[in-house]
């Protein structure tokens, strides 16, 4: 059974805050689903190539030229953001302030 600390570690990697009840629940569920995945251990795929697309498709590229968008389009996107200022997305500080005595 996946340990509680393992589940908490995964949740931390996934940036998910879980309640204690959720951690217990996920321990059980993730364990049983993971056990189901173990059926793949029967297979030796060392000589098999991974599949990439249903039909052979080469690298699809285009010219590296910026396609300008209207300011109206930009406004639509900014309107959906939780916090903006002067046309920028506003977020919490990413550098911690130091306390000067």
């Amino acid at each position: 059974m996946l340990s509680s600390s393992k589940v908490q570690h995964i949740a931390k990697l996934a940036r998910l805050e879980l309640s204690d009840k959720e951690i217990v629940k996920f321990q059980k569920e993730l364990t049983s689903i993971w056990e189901y995945f173990e059926v793949l251990s029967e297979l030796d795929v060392s000589k098999v190539e991974p599949m990439t697309h249903a039909v052979p498709l080469q690298n699809v590229s285009r010219q590296d030229i910026a396609k300008p968008k209207s300011s109206e389009e930009a406004q639509r996107l900014l309107k959906m953001a939780p916090e903006t200022k002067d046309g920028y997305l506003k977020v919490k500080s990413i550098l911690q302030p130091t306390n000067y005595a």
Partner: peptide
Amino acid sequence: KRRIMLGTYALS
């Protein structure tokens, strides 16, 4: 959440 965690685990 369940799927995000399963995937995070599988890719870790």
